[in-house]
C-alpha cells in the first residue's frame, strides 16, 4: 500500500519535472496509440505535444519527406473543426498533396511572410494562440534566443510547434525539445509488384531532451505509420546525405 502511494507521488513529481523541462503538461487528450512508434524515445513514453520539434533537411526530396512527416503528425493532432497555421517564407507546399497524409488541406491557413524575421514573429504569435491545433514554420535559420522564445510560448499555450529548417548554415544548438531528420527510403511494394508503393521514411530522432535518441523506418499507409521489417533498407552510411 505504501509502495503504491510512493509510486504515485514519484509519478506526479516526474510529470512536474517534465513540465518544467519543457516537455509540456500531460493532458488526457494525448493519443498514445496514434503516435505509438515514436513515443518510446521520449521521457515517460509519451510523445510531447506542448513542445517545439525541429526538423532539418538538405535535399529537395528530403524536404518533401519532412513536409510529409510533419503533415502526418499534424493530422494526428488535429481535432474536428480546428485549424493549423503553416508559416513560410516562399513555401512550396502544394495543398492537393497534403490530403494523402490524413490532413484536410482546407483546415490549414498558409502565411507567406515577406521576410524571415517577420516569419519568426508570426510563428511566435501563432504559438501563443491556444485556439490553434498546431503551428508549422518553415525557416532557414533559428538562433538559440529565438528558439527559446518559441519554446516558452509553447510551454504556456500547449500548441505543438514544428519548425522545418531547410539547408541551415549550421546545426546549431537550439532550445527545442527534439531534433529530427527525415530521409526518404525506397517505397515498399507488395510482393515485388511494379509501381511505387507507399511512402517510406527513415526517421532519425537526433536529439531529445531527457530521452533516448532513436531511429525508425516506417511507411505511411492507410493513414497510419507502419514499421518496415524489410531487408532491403540501405544503411545510413552508404547513402549520400547532404
Amino acid at each position: 500500500m505504501e509502495a503504491e502511494v510512493k509510486r504515485e507521488m514519484a509519478r506526479q513529481l516526474q510529470s512536474k519535472i517534465d513540465a518544467m523541462q519543457g516537455l509540456g503538461k500531460r493532458s488526457e487528450r494525448q493519443q498514445r496509440n496514434a503516435l505509438s512508434p515514436f513515443g518510446s524515445a521520449f521521457p515517460g513514453g509519451v510523445f510531447p505535444m506542448a513542445a517545439i520539434h525541429e526538423f532539418i533537411s538538405y535535399e529537395p526530396s528530403d524536404a518533401a519527406s519532412t513536409s510529409g512527416f510533419m503533415t502526418a503528425l499534424v493530422g494526428k493532432f488535429m481535432q474536428e473543426g480546428s485549424l493549423c497555421l503553416w508559416i513560410g517564407n516562399g513555401t512550396k507546399i502544394y495543398p492537393s498533396g497534403l490530403g494523402h497524409f490524413g490532413l484536410k488541406p482546407d483546415r490549414i491557413v498558409f502565411i507567406d511572410a515577406p521576410t524571415a524575421k517577420l516569419a519568426l514573429w508570426i510563428i511566435e504569435e501563432a504559438l501563443k494562440c491556444e485556439a490553434l491545433s498546431a503551428v508549422v514554420g518553415e525557416i532557414k535559420e533559428l538562433g538559440f534566443t529565438e528558439s527559446r522564445r518559441l519554446q516558452l510560448a509553447v510551454e504556456r499555450s500547449g500548441v505543438p510547434g514544428f519548425i522545418h529548417r531547410y539547408r541551415p548554415q549550421a546545426e546549431n544548438i537550439v532550445a527545442c525539445t527534439a531534433r529530427w531528420k527525415i530521409t526518404a527510403l525506397p517505397g515498399n511494394t507488395v510482393d515485388g509488384l511494379p509501381g511505387m508503393g507507399h511512402s517510406c521514411w527513415d526517421i532519425q530522432l537526433l536529439k531529445v531532451r531527457n530521452g533516448k535518441p532513436d531511429s525508425w523506418q516506417v511507411s505511411w499507409s492507410g493513414n497510419n505509420f507502419a514499421p518496415i521489417i524489410e531487408k532491403h533498407i540501405v544503411p545510413q552510411q552508404e547513402r549520400n546525405v547532404g
Partner: peptide
C-alpha cells in the same frame, strides 16, 4: 481568437500574405 491572430498578422505582413486553399 484565430481571427484576431490573423488580423495581427495581416496588419503587419500585408493582406495577401494569408491564404487558405480550396
Amino acid at each position: 481568437k484565430i481571427g484576431e491572430l490573423l488580423d495581427k498578422v495581416m496588419a503587419k505582413a500585408g493582406r495577401e500574405s494569408v491564404s487558405r486553399y480550396l
